[in-house]
């Protein structure tokens, strides 16, 4: 049954603000009496702007801030103290995307990468601690690029990702090219290493990562595998030859994308070979010029037709 009320009915259960009024001069005394009568609950409660303690003796936690030498509450709730850390726990609050990262996946909605679906340093079977939640920015930060596998779809169409394999994780030593997603065909493996010492990750979302080759040994994580490097944001040293190779592959990808040629490992290898043949008079940046680009497309499609 549907009832319509023009205004929200006032709730009966003392929710509305009802209290005996006192003259301001005696108000403080009356309040003190009430506090004494009741249990310690009321002394645990606080509201914004109420000084809690000295900032020299205590550390401020969530729900508090420091002004001068006082720790002051910033939300209404209960005061909690763990050793020297003072926090105020709000009764109603929203955590902005707790325990997860939002990932731009070239989709309608941002994909979600849960903390629980990430490989943490120090072994796959490690227990997740609360401290890991606080250190989430040490693993992935805003602006980081990462490769992940789609784990599941939520009911609303948002993707849930996971990186629980050493294949997946943070990207470095390379550059990102965006192509129309239809150009990427589903392959047996989307991790390709080209003979020219360049690794490719073809994302089905149209994001292609071109990077320096990582040896099989390093990737599999046996000897010489650096666990810290998985979440490092620093590039390794890249020699000039590799840099040109990466740049050349990237430009080839851009040309293929503008001519709407599907991107597969064979076509890329052919195009790379062609580009190397033209090298002296057609450098890396000249690949993007229209006449060179057209010549490349012709050569590549001719070879693909054979």
């Amino acid at each position: 049954m549907i009832t319509i009320t023009s205004f929200p009915t006032e709730s009966k259960d003392s929710d509305t603000y009802e209290r005996t009024r006192h003259h301001p001069d005696v108000l403080d005394d009356v309040l003190m009496d009430e506090f004494d009568e009741e249990d310690s609950l009321d002394t645990r409660l606080t509201s914004p702007g109420v000084p809690l303690t000295s900032s020299h003796a205590f550390m401020r936690g969530h729900g508090t801030y420091v002004d001068g030498d006082e720790v002051i509450a910033s939300v209404a709730g209960t005061i909690e103290r763990v050793n020297k850390l003072v926090t105020v726990r709000a009764l109603r609050s929203r955590q902005v995307a707790a325990r997860r990262w939002k990932v731009d996946a070239n989709a309608r909605q941002d994909a979600v990468l849960m903390l629980s679906s990430v490989n943490l340093p120090g072994g796959i079977q490690r227990r997740k601690l609360e401290s890991d939640e606080l250190q989430m920015r040490n693993f992935f930060e805003e602006g980081d690029l990462l490769v992940a596998e789609v784990q599941a779809f939520f009911a609303d169409g948002a993707m849930s990702l996971h990186t629980r394999s050493l294949k997946y994780g943070k990207l470095r030593n390379g550059q990102l090219i965006t192509v129309p997603p239809v150009l990427i065909r589903r392959l047996k493996s989307h991790f390709i290493s080209l003979p020219c010492g360049v690794d490719l990750i073809l994302g089905l979302n149209g994001y292609v990562w071109v990077s320096k080759h990582v040896t099989e040994r390093e990737r599999e994580g046996e000897e010489g595998f650096d666990a810290e490097a998985v979440y490092s944001s620093r590039n390794n040293d890249i020699d000039p030859a590799t840099r040109t190779a990466i740049a050349r592959v990237s430009n080839i990808l851009r040309v293929l994308a503008t001519y709407f040629v599907p991107i597969t490992d064979t076509i890329l290898a052919d195009a790379y070979e062609w580009a190397l043949e033209q090298d002296p008079e057609c450098g890396v940046k000249d690949l993007l010029r229209e006449e060179n680009a057209e010549a490349m497309i012709l050569a590549v499609t001719a070879r693909a037709a054979e």
Binding site: S47, P48, G49, Y65, I72, A76, L91, R92, S93, R94
Partner: peptide, 11 residues
């Protein structure tokens, strides 16, 4: 704002 649990410097 207080009932929403949003951090304020003061009332």
């Amino acid at each position: 704002l207080i009932t929403a649990g949003i951090s304020l410097f003061d009332y």
